[in-house]
Design a protein around this nucleic acid. Structure first.
Length: 309
DNA sequence: TTGTCATGCATAC
DNA sequence: TATGCCTGACAAG
């Protein structure tokens, strides 16, 4: 269940393991058979994330667009040396085959009885694999996406253009921020809804939405028009900070009040990671007022009614 | 074991 | 506003 940071990490993984190589593309599940045939055997030229979407460009100019939705995930398999992670120890002799690292709904290595090593390679697909991208020593399996399609270059450009700026992708972060400020402050829609609107700003999901608004001490119901430009700019800048941190660590840790020890504890215990998200009824970490949960545009919204006014 | 919910969003009504 | 995607974590029994 990814927000923007996860998709950027996946793009980095693609860049490291698959970009520049010819890729065998298949659809074990069958639902992407035609798209797989179109891409099969081509060289992957580039992989990039914009917001929550992954764009993989192939030699022909065709682009694979993937959106993981609520529970999509990529499972990566590969040799120890091929998988890297900076640790290639123990890879002498015959390649040792490592089990999946999942990126999407929950990022971690899959446990296995063989101490993390595969019996054979390539591995059998697990579950409904919509698309498999494979080289001699790397396999990436996509499961449960809400979108998986091949676009020509024009259509791919149009898909990117429908998205608002992404601070991890923008060539000029300050200029991109002004675009976001315009869009946030130009409408009467609640700022809590605007932050989740991917055409306003890309990559923010329900957790980052709740946490950004708390960190700004801003009431989510405030109409965009009533948000001062300076505050809208601060939201964008804070999003850039949280996103960069999420990309670096793989963890959505949104509390800036923790010391090193506290951060380590929060990585282990998810209930310590956030100010308000998922804490309905629990005391606000700042003022003790019970955190409120309500529905906004069919999503759960968490806020402190005392701090965020 | 079964049921519910979830970090998203396009589509249909 | 409801549904589907098709999965995994967790709570309840």
């Amino acid at each position: 269940m990814p927000e923007g940071h996860t998709v950027h990490r996946i793009a980095h993984r693609f860049t490291r393991d698959l970009v520049g190589r010819e890729v065998a593309v298949s659809s074990p599940q069958g639902r992407f058979a035609a798209g797989a045939r179109r891409l099969d055997g081509q060289r992957l030229v580039r992989a990039s994330a914009v917001g929550k979407q992954l764009f993989c460009t192939f030699d022909s100019g065709d682009v694979l667009r993937v959106h993981l939705g609520l529970y999509g995930a990529w499972d990566f398999y590969g040799t120890v040396s091929g998988i890297g992670d900076g640790d290639t120890s123990g890879s002498m002799g015959a390649p040792r085959l490592r089990r999946a690292v999942r990126m999407g709904e929950d990022e971690r290595e899959q446990p296995s009885a063989e101490g993390g090593l595969l019996a054979h390679f390539p591995p059998d697909p697990v579950g409904q694999v919509r698309v498999r991208l494979a080289t001699d020593d790397t396999v990436a399996d996509l499961r449960g996406p809400s979108a998986c399609e091949v676009l020509d270059p024009d259509a791919a450009r149009a898909a990117v253009d429908r998205l608002g700026p992404d601070p991890a992708t923008a060539s000029d972060v300050a200029a991109a921020g002004e675009v976001v400020v315009d869009r946030l402050t130009g409408r009467s829609v609640a700022v809590g809804q605007l932050l989740m609107d991917q055409s306003v700003v890309a990559g923010i999901g329900n957790i980052y939405r709740a946490e950004l608004l708390f960190r700004a001490r801003l009431d989510p119901h405030t109409p965009g028009r009533q948000v001062p430009r300076e505050l809208a700019r601060a939201l964008w800048e804070d999003w850039a900070v949280l996103l960069a941190d999420g990309i670096r660590t793989g963890v959505m840790l949104t509390r800036e009040d923790l010391d090193d020890e506290g951060r380590v504890a929060a990585v282990i215990d998810p209930t310590l990671r956030h100010w308000v998200y998922g804490r309905g009824g629990e005391p606000c970490r700042v003022c003790g007022t019970p955190v409120v949960v309500e529905e906004m545009a069919a999503r759960k919204l968490y806020l402190c009614p005392s701090c965020q006014r």
